[in-house]
Design a protein around this nucleic acid. Structure first.
Length: 444
RNA sequence: GCGGGCGUAGCUCAACUUGGUUAGAGCACUCCCCUGUCACGGGAGAGGUUGCGGGUUCAAGUCCCGUCGCUCGCGCCA
């Protein structure tokens, strides 16, 4: 008999079916035994009646997370036992035969829907198991929709998808620390950003995007930093100003939020998620104005506490959970960021903040080769280390800009998690690569 | 790197403030009971070097010092 998916059982009332999946829980009533069965499509209650002696004999030994194949008939539940508003709440599988496909040892923690409550280190130490919990699965289903709808949106805007390299030479883009790789007889580095590559590819394909892992060797242990993250990158030519980049970024984020709201209804409900509000025109404020608003010294960047306060103020004034901040000190940002024409000390870089956390950064880039070389010199960079990048601009590059989104940070904030590690299936940080590094031997 | 918090059963937590018989509970586990349960219910049982080391004391899970680990905040970082 072919396998029927659990979500389709409602179409087979009165029929004999076969399902296969995991046992979420057994409720033993003595003469009656109930199960919740689960497969990739959903859950259903099974009941083993006393007359099914063979099935009952098997059922008595089955515990949570056993993998089973079950044959039986789909029946409507007695009226008083219907669960309204739940998948298969009106039906149950009357078990006639059960086969154990794989046994499971007793679980190291409470996997029940109501009792699941783990400290983060325990959740991560047992990732293979915690990944089976509906609430954990919901987080990663939302994340898959975020990344998928980023792709969908960029393609709808005629952006070309390319694969950025992970192994890079020493480009010294400045900023973040990089991981060194032993590369045959040489040193190479893990990419901390596809920035220069996406600009190169832009000069050939005009509008480009990439979805790839980036790596940062920062000694940061915070609730919003990882050493390995998914970066959603976009770059576009023929802009007139940085506002064109902002508008594209805003449409992109709006599309992603709308996709999640329509495609992840059950997941958001299960997680009790409060999706951030994006209003018609996202408030946009210069860094200088933001600092004035906060009563902060004029020459600094926003610290985390100020980012939170700014977001709270904007939320109160406009109802928006998002705010664009633009115009950063030119010297404090990478060499490729475009300085304002009338005030070159300030650039056309921008960030998108949401509820105190940075979701996106981007802006306009320098496309004029002479100006670029001038910055390379001022930033004391070695042109031979970024020769490929410079070549793209030496031979004609349009006015351009782009942005990058952090997929894990978006996931974290959309579903309302406190720690980015919960929004990452296999998080890497200073203390952990799957297991805790402190339990390994240190390298000499 | 700096500062705070925490470390008790497989998991989540009590007991610590004010040191005092045998360190408790829920879930999980083992056994028993239950014909309509809703990630059940009832009964019994097993499960602990209180992270580790030292100190104070008649007596330390509890107070002190050290150490290791985790965690939160800052810094760094986008």
């Amino acid at each position: 008999m072919p396998r029927t998916l659990i979500k389709d059982l409602g179409k087979h009332i009165g029929e004999k079916v076969k399902i296969a999946g995991w046992v979420s829980v057994r409720r033993d009533q003595g003469k009656l035994v109930f199960f919740d069965f689960r497969d990739r499509s959903g859950s259903v209650q099974g009941v083993v009646l006393p007359k099914e002696e063979l099935a009952m004999a098997v059922a008595k030994d089955i515990r949570a997370e056993y993998v089973v194949a079950v044959e039986g008939s789909v029946g409507e539940r007695p009226a008083q036992n219907v669960n309204v508003g739940v998948l298969n709440g009106n039906i149950e599988l009357k078990v006639e035969a059960m086969q154990v496909l794989a046994a499971a040892e007793s679980l190291p923690f409470d996997m029940s829907l109501t009792g699941y409550n783990l400290d983060l280190p325990t959740e991560l130490d047992h990732r293979a198991l915690s990944l089976r919990h509906p609430k954990v699965q919901a987080v990663f289903k939302v994340q898959a929709v975020i990344i998928g709808s980023f792709r969908e949106f960029m393609k709808s805007q005629d952006f070309f998808e390319f694969q950025a390299p992970t192994i890079t030479p020493a480009m010294a883009e400045g900023g973040a620390e990089v991981f060194e790789v032993s590369y045959f007889d040489h040193k190479a580095y893990l990419s901390q950003s596809p920035q220069l590559y996406k600009q190169i590819v832009m000069t050939a394909f005009e509008r480009v995007f990439s979805v790839n892992k980036i790596f940062r060797a920062e000694p940061s242990v915070t609730t919003r930093h990882l050493t390995e993250v998914v970066s959603l990158d976009a770059e576009m030519g023929f802009i007139e100003s940085w506002q064109d980049v902002r508008d594209m970024a805003e449409h992109c984020v709006r599309f992603i939020l709308d996709s999640v709201k329509t495609r992840c209804v059950e997941e958001l409900k299960l997680l009790g998620a409060d999706v951030p509000v994006m209003i018609e025109h996202t408030p946009t404020i210069s860094l200088a104005d933001a600092l004035t608003k906060l009563g902060a010294p004029a020459d600094k960047d926003l610290n985390p506490e100020q980012e939170r306060r700014l977001c709270e103020m904007i939320k109160q004034e406009t109802g928006s959970d998002f705010v664009f901040v633009y115009g950063y000190p030119t010297k404090q940002k990478p060499f490729y960021v475009y300085p304002q024409k009338d005030n070159p000390a300030v650039n056309e870089g921008m960030d998108l903040l949401c509820r105190g956390v940075e979701w996106l950064s981007g802006g306009r880039r320098i496309n004029d080769y002479t100006q670029l070389m001038d910055h390379v010199a001022k930033w004391k960079m070695d042109p031979s280390k970024i020769a490929m990048f410079l070549e793209a601009f030496r031979y004609g590059a349009p006015p351009e800009g782009g942005f990058a989104l952090g997929a894990e940070r978006m996931t974290m904030q959309i579903v309302g998690l406190k720690n980015i590690r919960e929004a990452t299936m296999f998080p890497r940080d200073m203390n952990r690569i799957d297991g805790l590094l402190s339990s390994d031997e240190k390298k000499e």
